[in-house]
Nucleic acid binder design. Structure first.
Lengths: 277, 277
DNA sequence: ATTGCCCTTCCAAATAACGGAAGATCAAAG
DNA sequence: CTTTGATCTTCCGTTATTTGGAAGGGCAAT
């Protein structure tokens, strides 16, 4: 998990006494847990946070008492169900997700591929929903996972809605972080890709995220016309041949429009300011 | 969210100095958020936790700085994406979920109904996965939501694996909390239901959770033979007529067995102690 | 029996939280 | 434009909590 929203200048915008340092310490413990390190021993937490064992012990014990961490038989700790419950609350608050779920399911049905939905968060796509089909190899990004935006179709769609200066600044902050040899890694290349997305309204990923995986994405817009989320279908490249791309794009765009419509976006409404120009 | 694991006697098992009170306060703020109250203003948080405004302000600010809470334009706060990320980590650690996802999808496909997976937590079913079909009315329990165990097919399957004394104690702790007129509300009735589940291996819910909703569930067992989770299919009662129940039960049981098998459970292995006898 | 590792508790010193108050901000009402 | 009310933010002396080193207990491997 990436630390806070702090970028270059505005770090520590708050006065010292208006935050509770101890609560922050507790949250730092939670923040250690991620997909690559889903289990932690107290000793390692102490090392990582650079606090004495007894202090880390106290933090973990507190989180355990509240159920936010659970002690495994091995003595290590994992995230507990209360956090899943809270996440459920958060997800249900995302209108775009709630309205989009059935569309994702439809998409998966009619295309025979996996369908995904993501939002943009700190230069990453953040995946908030998906519909998998057991017939498709298990290639999808799980709930709550991230991916570098400019290396994915979903991300390109979302970035294309921002002024390129902002995109450039995101890259500067977080780096190129390519996944494969095909991942975009230079500014001119990215700028060309952005222009293409804006021109045709959708984005394609041909093995830029995972070798052999292809993806077609389109933006979901809110009442104000902003691309607040993106949906996509994805599958192994033999199921997503070049000649099928435009048909898939049409389908995805269709469903994206339907979700946008439900969110109050009216494509024909002239009051919508075009994102760029 | 229900408070900690504390039951009648064993509250505060920890010595006072081995927990960080301030961290606990921060977690209490988070715990206020649930499906019925997904948004909170600082003023209300202060009232609810019975602390001065300035204190609640400090808590919320801290959680906001770390991204765990997000301030809405309205001035109220919601759960932030970092918690969704953590929940994703937790869900991916649940083997039964990871192995079961494709089976749920299959189940939804072959039955044309929604499929669900839940575990037992403090007398409730806790839903950890589902596969919805857009053709089915949106009747399903979302990720991270709970339901009273003895009022659902999933719950009955899970309870039936426990000694009845334990079930009785759960009811005593949490109450009957019926959902509909058909919900089980007496001990003899529940005991009979448990026996029936143990006899036939699956459970049925005929409008006990929601009027007009039917559900058929079967247990998923781990290496030790314990019912650690349950899966089900559910749908409106006109799609799940009485004469279809046994066929559905067979299908659900089949998939539950396959998941159990993947978890290392061998139904034929005589070393498994029968749950009750 | 010994060693090493982790868990749990204890305690005095250091520090961070507390909470009342006051100024700032903002929007709606007069 | 001024007033009013409500929420936001900061300040600061007091007080309660955290801190972290030490020490004892448990467990398993040596």
């Amino acid at each position: 998990m990436r630390r806070s929203r702090a970028r270059e200048g505005d770090r520590d915008a708050r006065r010292p006494d208006s935050v509770a340092k101890t609560i922050g310490s507790g949250l730092q413990v939670l923040s250690l847990f991620n997909h690559l390190a889903p289990e932690w021993a107290i000793t390692n937490i102490a090392q990582r946070l650079d606090v004495p064992y007894s202090t880390a012990y106290r933090y973990v014990t507190t989180l355990d008492v509240e159920g936010y961490l659970v002690r495994q038989p091995s003595g290590m700790y994992r995230i507990g169900l209360p956090l899943v419950e809270l996440a459920g609350v958060a997800l249900n608050q995302l209108d775009v997700r709630v309205h989009g779920l059935s569309h994702l399911d439809h998409l998966a049905d009619v295309t025979g591929l996996n369908a995904n939905m993501a939002v943009l968060d700190q230069g990453d796509t953040f995946h908030i929903a998906y519909a998998v089909r057991s017939a498709v190899p298990r290639m999808y990004t799980a709930l709550g996972r991230r991916a570098v935006a400019h290396c994915t179709a979903l991300g390109k769609v979302l970035l294309a809605d921002l002024p390129f200066e902002e995109v450039r600044s995101l890259i500067e902050t977080y780096g190129w972080r390519p996944y494969t040899a095909r991942s975009i890694q230079t500014a001119p290349e990215l700028e060309r890709a952005m222009a293409e997305v804006r021109a045709c309204g959708y984005a394609v990923d041909r093995g830029e995220r995972n070798v052999g995986l292809r993806c077609v994405a389109a933006p979901v817009r809110d009442r104000g016309g902003r691309a607040i989320a993106a949906i996509s279908v994805s599958g192994p490249q033999d199921r997503v041949p070049e000649e099928r791309l435009s048909e898939l794009a049409t389908t995805v765009l269709e469903h994206a429009s339907m979700i946008s419509y439900r969110l109050g976006y009216d494509a024909a409404d002239p009051t919508h300011v075009l994102p760029l120009g």
